[in-house]
Amino acid sequence: MASAPSKLYADDVSVLVVLLDTNPFFWSSFAFPFSKFLSHFLSFLNSILVLNQLNQVVVIATGCNSCDYIYDSSMATSPSIESGRMPALCSDLLQKLEEFVTRDEHLGKQDSLGPTTSSLLSGSLSMALCYIQRIFRSGPLHPQPRILCLQGSSDGPEQYVAIMNAIFSAQRSMVPIDSCYIGSNNSAFLQQASYITGGVYQKPQQLDGLFQYLLTVFATDLHSRTFLQLPKSVGVDFRASCFCHKKTIDMGYICSVCLSIFCKHHKKCSTCGSVFGQAHADVASASNLKRKTPET
C-alpha cells in the first residue's frame, strides 16, 4: 500500500476486506465442514487476486472472543503472488488462521462467562472500517474498497448499538457491506447492514456450490455491478434489541427523550434518567381519538 498514490487505479480495482467467521460453536454444530468451506474460500480469494493484478485482499477473522487480521495481500513479502504460485497465499493464511483460532479458544477458557454462541462481528466490522479509512487516506486515487461478511453464527443482540454505529459510518463513507450468510436462519444485522450500505445480502441455498455463489455475486467490483443483475433483497429484518435485556424485539417502548428501546413499560429511563409522566396516556388517547373519529 505504500506505493498506492503513485499507481493509477482503474475503476474496477478493488480492495476486498473479508470478515471470516471462525466461531467454533457454529462450525462444530454445522453440517458443512469448516475445511471444505475453507477450500471454497481460498479459491475465491485467489480468483479475486487473479481478476486484476492490482486487486487487494484483506482477511479479518471474526472470533468468539477476539478478532484479528490474518491476511493482507499487500503485506505478502514472498514474491509468490507475482510469480503466480498460489499455495503461498494458502499456507500464509492457514497458518495465521490456526494461530488465531487457538488464541481465541484460549481466551474463551480464561473467561468465566460460559460459552457464547455469537461472534464479535462489531469488532471485525470496526477494524475493517479503520483499514478502509487508511485506503481513503492513501491519496485521491485509491482502489474501491468493500467489505464481505462471511458469517455463520447467529447475531449477538448485545452488539446492536456498535454494529449500527459501524453500519452508519460505512454508509457515510459509501463502503458497501456484502453479506454471505450461511447459518440456518437469516441474520437481521447483516440484512440491515447490506440494505443500508447498498451491498448484497445472500444466503446460499446449496453450500456445495459456495464457490460459485462467491464468484458470481461477491467477486464483482462496484463498477461492474451497475451492469449486472445481482440477487434482489428477499426482505429486511428491521428488528432491534431492547436496552434492558438485549432481547431482539419487533415492538417496544421508546423513551421520548433519548430514543432508548425497552421491551416493556418502565417508570424511569435507565439510559437518560427521565421519569415518564402521564403524557404516555395522553399520547395513547390522542392517537386513539384520531383513529376512532372516522368510525364514530
Binding site: D250, M251, H266, G277
Partner: peptide
C-alpha cells in the same frame, strides 16, 4: 418525557 409504544416493521 414519555414512553411511546412503537413497532419495527420488516
Amino acid at each position: 418525557a414519555n414512553l411511546i409504544k412503537m413497532g419495527f416493521p420488516q
